[in-house]
Design a protein around this nucleic acid. Structure first.
Length: 151
DNA sequence: CGTTTGACTACGC
DNA sequence: CGCGTAGCCAAAC
């Protein structure tokens, strides 16, 4: 299955989550997928592999509808890069929008998820929508839990 | 009607 | 750090 069992229900969930992403940060296909329960009939192990691609499908469907309420530009791949074909009009548009939102790309054209990675929606919102907590995008800061309050 | 192709990721070198 | 590969199947060609 490289396609959601039921796009009509799966896509809207994805779009609702994407609508929660604030300007200035970014999420990933995998993180979005991690919040959505596997559709009935789909094994969790399969979903882990297929979910991210389905999220990509949902994003593709947005551009078709040209829905201005879905900030699709804030969803990038797990490496912090734009997944649209390099040089394509859509890719350039996404790049421009992200720059406009204050995000910065390194010389490899990638965003540092440790800095700009999204922490997910409010917990209340997640509960109201029966969604799971997102998989963290930021890697643990080595040891020293959290950070010393001292500066 | 057979082939190619994905808005992905994790993993191995 | 970068490049290649598997997993997998509906659509587009």
């Amino acid at each position: 299955m490289d396609f959601p069992p039921n796009p009509d229900t799966f896509y809207p969930i994805v779009w609702n989550i994407v609508r929660q992403i604030p300007s200035g940060v970014v999420s990933t296909y995998g993180q979005i997928a991690s919040m959505i329960p596997p559709p009935s009939g789909v094994e969790p192990t399969d979903y882990e592999r297929l979910g991210p691609r389905w999220v990509g499908k949902a994003m593709n469907a947005v551009s078709g509808k040209d829905d201005p309420t879905v900030p699709w530009q804030r969803v990038i791949n797990s490496q912090g890069g734009i997944s649209l074909p390099a040089g394509s009009a859509a890719a350039l548009e996404q790049h421009a929008r992200l720059l406009r939102e204050g995000l910065t790309f390194d010389k490899r054209e990638r965003i540092d998820l440790n800095i700009a990675g999204w922490d997910g929606p409010d917990e209340d919102w997640l509960r109201e929508n029966d969604l799971f907590p997102p998989r963290p995008l930021k890697k643990p800061p080595k040891k020293e839990s959290g950070q010393l309050s001292l500066f």
